[in-house]
């Protein structure tokens, strides 16, 4: 096994997903298959090979420090599941 059910539960917590017990089992099995498959990359010696983060090798894309239009409070909040006082409303955050 490449991955244990405990690992999968930990990853689910990181990803803010809650998995039902049967989902957890299926997920563990499927992740295990995939992780087994991607092992094949280890057949390749990549010593000294630069990692490729972008499809096209470019650098330095900037914008000037100039204002662009805002979308306005109403539009900003139009899709909010809950709002109030011009803000997005969420279950109380305890610090």
């Amino acid at each position: 096994m490449k991955i244990s059910q405990n690992d999968v539960e930990h990853v689910a917590r990181l990803a803010r997903l809650s998995l039902e017990p049967d989902e957890l089992q299926t997920m563990t099995r499927q992740m295990d298959v995939m992780l087994g498959y991607v092992e094949k990359l280890n057949e390749l010696d990549t010593t000294g090979i630069e990692p490729m983060a972008h499809a096209v090798p470019m650098s330095n894309a900037f914008r000037k420090d100039e204002s662009q239009p805002v979308i306005g409070i109403e539009r900003a909040l139009q899709n909010a599941p809950a709002s109030g006082e011009n803000c997005f409303k969420v279950p109380k955050v305890i610090e």
Partner: peptide, 25 residues
């Protein structure tokens, strides 16, 4: 004058969410 990744103003103390756009939202 504007945010690091979009053109919204950085001014302090404005009405909540009045200085937003798709990027910073």
């Amino acid at each position: 004058k504007t945010k690091i990744f979009c053109g919204c103003s950085t001014e302090f103390g404005q009405t909540p969410n009045s200085q937003t756009c798709p990027v910073c939202l």
